[in-house]
Design a binder for these strands. Sequence first.
DNA 1: GCTGCCCCTTGATCTGGATCAATAACACCG
DNA 2: CGGTGTTATTGATCCAGATCAAGGGGCAGC
Lengths: 251, 251
Amino acid sequence: MTLHSHRLTDRDSPIADDGDEVRFCSTCAFSGASTQAGYDKAALRDLHVLVEHVGPYQAGAHVFRRHDPFRAIYAVRGGTVKTVAIDTEGNEQVLGFYIPGEVVGLNAIYPEHYPCDAVALEPTYFCRFSFSAISALATKMPGLQQQLFRLLSKELGMTSRLAGDHAADERVAAFLIDLAERYATQGFPARRLHLAMSRSEIADYLRLAAETVSRMLTRFRDLGLIAIDGRDVEILAPAPLNELARNVLGR
Amino acid sequence: MTLHSHRLTDRDSPIADDGDEVRFCSTCAFSGASTQAGYDKAALRDLHVLVEHVGPYQAGAHVFRRHDPFRAIYAVRGGTVKTVAIDTEGNEQVLGFYIPGEVVGLNAIYPEHYPCDAVALEPTYFCRFSFSAISALATKMPGLQQQLFRLLSKELGMTSRLAGDHAADERVAAFLIDLAERYATQGFPARRLHLAMSRSEIADYLRLAAETVSRMLTRFRDLGLIAIDGRDVEILAPAPLNELARNVLGR
DNA sequence: GCTGCCCCTTGATCTGGATCAATAACACCG
DNA sequence: CGGTGTTATTGATCCAGATCAAGGGGCAGC
């Protein structure tokens, strides 16, 4: 039905048609910005004008690197990205995974340099927005300003929930539930999901060992909560998973 | 020299004089907003008009509670606050400590309800800003908008650094260094700090047990890195502490 | 000055998840 | 196809920090 669910089944045309700008934007992270506070045609055109479509970035390619000067934020159009901070001992710390409709780079506003790397996990396309341009535009478009505030606040909430000390099973359950919900928001089926990231990347995100993630998934499978086929996961029993995830997701 | 350092030595007059609005604002979280993009006198007056001075909140008093509808953000004027999320098992999860010049409540923008409690740790005063009013004003005052973005992004960075998996000694060192630096930013002496929070609150913030925090402080003392007198801490050897804190603080 | 209540420290044990180690299941490619 | 590198699973052991337990110390109220 939507562009995104279409993409899931048609890997040969992985991005939305750029021709129809308005329809394109309805699937994007800033869709709410225009419709919210009354539809300002001119402002909406400004938003479309300042966007640059970039990609594809192949799996493993860097979208930006730590210490690069902050210029732009990236809305994922298709594909998946991770943001990673690598500490002095070389441990990878995954800060987040971003799927279509989500925005990468907001944590660079304050330091004015990206504090982490952004790496594509599969061929990935973005809308790139110059931050100075989009914040200038936000001045004329209260809905856009509001949307930026909301995006930042949302990510803040997500990050602090992840920061809590939770048992491994709760973390893994929360990861699955959260990802499934985010895909659902973008119009993907809510029960089946494809993990673009490795077990070890999930572990680096959840602050667990890859072995622990694997064990938890196996346990969930043995309990009949999920079905696993490599990186394809089907959620069979959302209720008990939600129960596990509850504390992590703050409900 | 500044109002804040004055307060440290004069506990009887714990807040800045409200009479001199401009001087007051020069110590506040939004000081950069006005001076940044050219000084707009009218806009600055708007900012002063929309602020409400609230407090004191006594130690233990709630500033807002989880699930309260989000209306305002609070800039700490004097005192200390913690934000806390309490999970279903009753474990306290401290999300942050806020000292004068810092802003509480930004994580409520997206959910539109406060996702945590805010509790004063000592008698505490705030500037309260209606969020709808301040974001409306931000539209006319690019510097203010920028400041809000920066505050959100800064907190995002802080939270995700805390979320990393770091050893207990690294966490505690980072806590001390970070707090000392934040006090220093506000004009307090950089080497001596008074902890407004208990060991157990520090532990709930760092995701450690209170006993572990205590042991780490003792270890640092035995190593000659700090001097401890109850809740007063003096940093004797910043270099090794910084070294420990490095990975946590992302340097 | 005494009493009760926290908060803090210190010591002794326990445990969840990390780490180490060994296969197993792939995917890619010549 | 089989070979090779990568990713995932499963089992065995270990350890940092949690938990349990027992004082010690400050301070408010009486």
